[in-house]
Simulated assay, not measured.
Amino acid sequence: MNVEEFREFCLSLGDVTEKMPFGKFAARYDSILAFYVSGHMFCFIDINDFNYVDVKSTPERIEEFRRDYTSVGNPINQSLRHWIKLYFNGDIPLSVITDSVRNAYGIIKAKYAPKPRRKP
């Protein structure tokens, strides 16, 4: 998978937008592309160094990744409880990485989706 294929995959999930928001904090983050649903980030990549994806996750799943794989790291945003870095060319199958991105999308979508209105 290359950057464009990954980008198309994320955008295909539905109602996804993309931004490069981190350059305003430091020039070294100019190449970070973040994907959003419901206005909230669910994953991001470095388009100049496409070796990993940082994904939103649950603490339990993050613990599983750290236990089961060596190709994990700390996310750029350093939110270690809810984010994890997954490396593409290591021991994590691509299908597990894409499932993790879908899961991250689902976490955000469920949390921030508009609530149905109650009937009076």
Rank of each mutant, 00 (worst) to 15 (best):
G39P: 13
R28V: 10
P116I: 01
I108P: 04
G90A: 03
F50W: 13
I92M: 04
T17M: 01
G106N: 10
R118Q: 11
F44M: 02
S71W: 02
S57T: 08
K56A: 09
R66S: 13
I84M: 06
Y36Q: 03
S71A: 15
I45N: 01
G106E: 10
Y87M: 06
I92N: 05
L11A: 09
D54V: 00
D91K: 04
L80T: 08
F22I: 02
L11K: 14
P120R: 10
L33Q: 07
F25M: 08
R7M: 07
T98V: 07
E18R: 00
D46V: 06
S38A: 13
D15Y: 08
E60D: 13
R61M: 13
S100P: 11
E60I: 12
N48P: 02
K24D: 01
V53S: 11
K115I: 04
G39E: 11
N48T: 12
T70A: 15
Y87L: 14
N2E: 14
N48L: 12
E64M: 12
D30V: 05
R102D: 02
D46L: 07
K85W: 02
R102K: 15
T70I: 13
F42A: 07
N2L: 12
G39C: 12
N89S: 13
L13C: 03
E63N: 14
R81E: 11
E5V: 07
Q78W: 09
I84V: 15
F9C: 02
S12M: 02
P120Y: 03
D30K: 10
N2I: 08
S38N: 14
N89G: 15
T70L: 15
Y112F: 08
H82P: 01
A34T: 03
V3Y: 10
R102I: 06
N2A: 11
D46I: 06
V101I: 12
F6I: 03
D54K: 00
R67H: 15
N77G: 01
K24S: 12
D68E: 15
E63M: 08
Y52Q: 10
D46P: 00
T98W: 07
L33H: 03
K111E: 14
A27M: 05
P114W: 08
Y29R: 06
R28N: 09
I92H: 00
D68A: 15
K56Q: 12
S95H: 04
F88D: 06
T58D: 10
